[in-house]
Design a protein around this nucleic acid. Structure first.
Lengths: 344, 344
DNA sequence: CTGAAAGCGCTAACAA
DNA sequence: TTGTTAGCGCTTTCAG
């Protein structure tokens, strides 16, 4: 609590300058490899730097400089979806000379929407040279730094974007269920403020229509992309007079919630209830039963985002929208409906 | 490329002050909720803030302030191990009023060791209030901010630490193979500059000794905790005149490398070769065959680290070392050695 | 070749 | 209640 008599611990450029008997300007030049410093002086400064363990403060230098070589990744939280993309980003960024800074602001209920704008303002312009924003909920305004959005709110007008084919993915998921013989197919919707959720519901409805199955609004509930909310949705669905024999959840986390409810009701998956997810996060393959889902190439999406952002930072023109294919991965959570003839 | 005629995009406190017709000091007070501002003035400022979309720059304010409410997480890269811990950190930090900033410096070969010191210097003191360092390779020196180390280089002397019982985990892994009937058990070592790798090797040797199996140095190779390096190790091991019937890899990634080599040699896992990993990252459960491994409670380790760091930040005393138990998870990559009598 | 000085955006004393 | 001033650590002209 008291003011420490000595220094506070962090060694600053001033400390180095004093110890080396030069000015801070000289130290700065040496540290940044600028010309115009005598070799002997430089050597002495470097020695002091090494001895004191000095590192230039990212904060202070970024305030003064225009470039920091730091790529910001803005996200709402480190969930399996985001971390999977992070893996791709990290793998692609290695060796390219950029540092990575993944930032998650303090999320609370009243800033669940619009967090990306706030984060971008807080970091942008000084700390980071550019940003990759994961799953923005709103249109990111023209920002002060280059931005690439992954799984964005909307596919056009805003910044460059990377996403996967949500509609076709949802169609494939629903079609798989239909091919299995299901007719009462429910959908646990994602976060309705996200474009991806809208598209997945659309794919679900299109696929139903293709098969001539009438759309029943009773079979669609909000799951908010979260396991906890999806359980409520699943409970409602399974309490229906004519309950579904299959549920297409808008993402894997929701699917886990659905399976949990099935378990608590004594329903076997897939014999009594088929479940399909979306995303194919690593946890999907190890769920019990292993989850049939639509795989998004999450890591590749991250890699592409980095490639695009670096191109932007280097002033190159890039394609503004990259869409990667999704793919049905059939595992063990889907089967023909109860009472159906056994598979041929 | 040309200098834009208007402003550069980012709106600063000066812009707000000018637009509201007040001084920057007043804006600062309003934005930070300080007392001593007339209600009407505050209202007007707030209006301008909302209209311009102003957010205080984390960089500038952190340079001046002592607290930022940001927790730094320092890591060498976003690999499955780190991201798993991140999930725990994020889950635990939500609602606690802290922002999270995961930072990975530009890693290259010449700074593979010592990156944590550099990162800490670059962020510490100003940007972040405290740090959680994942898998530091060296002893983190007494830092300018509170630090908690996860899976640290050494368990004592330095900062507060969280890890799991590496020795007992490695013993359990080896014992499992011995119980299956294996006698030629190899070990693909981790990064020898990391404490965990040392401890896992120690557990391996202890378990061998307990069973009266002589230690054969030929059966231990370096895998550096990386799949790519582990393949080399595995190739050497499987080219031995008297090759092992089982391999205990120091982490799951290495185990994947081992399984890849087995595949390319036409060896079936587990019939021809048993493989055990360590960590139980999500990918382990979905590998083919599903990987028997030692589970570390990675997410919980992250949670505990947050709890400890927040306690530290609030000036509370804490236990300096938390060790969580590891646990053997038997899946499909281990079986009795070829030619052994079938299981009873 | 070196250092003094200005200033990045912001906060915190202190004056007015 | 408000504004003026100093300064966080650093980089960058610009004189010396």
């Amino acid at each position: 609590m008291d003011n420490p008599p000595t220094t506070t611990g962090r060694v600053t450029i001033t400390d180095v300058a004093r110890a080396a008997g030069v000015s801070v300007a000289t130290v700065s030049k040496v540290v940044n490899g600028r010309y115009g410093v005598a070799a002997t002086t430089a050597e002495r400064v470097l020695e002091v730097v090494a001895h004191l363990g000095y590192e230039t403060s990212l904060v202070a230098s970024s305030l003064r400089r225009s470039r920091t070589n730091v790529i910001g990744i803005l996200l709402a939280g480190f969930d399996p979806f985001a971390t999977e993309i992070l893996k791709g980003i990290s793998a692609e960024a290695v060796g390219k000379g950029y540092e990575l800074l993944a930032y998650s602001g303090a999320i609370s209920d009243d800033n669940a929407v619009g967090w990306e704008r706030r984060s971008l303002s807080r970091l942008g312009g000084t700390l980071i040279d550019g940003a990759i924003i994961l799953t923005p909920t709103v249109n990111v305004p023209t920002a002060s730094v280059p931005v690439v959005a992954v799984d964005p709110h909307t596919g056009s007008g805003g910044p460059s974007t990377v996403d996967c084919d949500n509609i076709e993915g949802a169609r494939a998921a629903t079609r798989h269920l239909i091919d299995l013989g299901h007719r009462r197919i429910a959908h646990v919707r994602g976060r309705t403020d996200l474009e991806s959720a809208r598209l997945r519901e659309q794919g679900y409805r299109e696929s139903l229509e293709d098969a001539g199955i009438p759309y029943d609004p009773d079979l669609v509930r909000d799951g908010g992309y979260r396991a906890a909310w999806a359980t409520d949705a699943a409970r409602e669905l399974l309490s229906l007079d004519d309950p579904p024999t299959a549920i297409f959840a808008a993402n894997d986390l929701s699917a886990f919630g659905v399976m949990e409810v099935a378990r608590e009701r004594g329903l076997r998956v897939p014999q009594d209830l088929s479940v399909v997810g979306f995303d194919d996060i690593p946890e999907a393959a190890s769920a019990s039963p292993r989850l049939t889902t639509i795989a998004q190439p999450l890591q590749e999406m991250g890699m592409r985002a980095v490639t695009m952002l670096i191109a932007l930072l280097e002033g190159r023109r890039i394609e503004t929208h990259v869409q990667l294919p999704s793919q049905l991965v059939i595992r063990k959570s889907t089967a023909p409906p109860p009472g159906a003839a056994p598979e041929a």
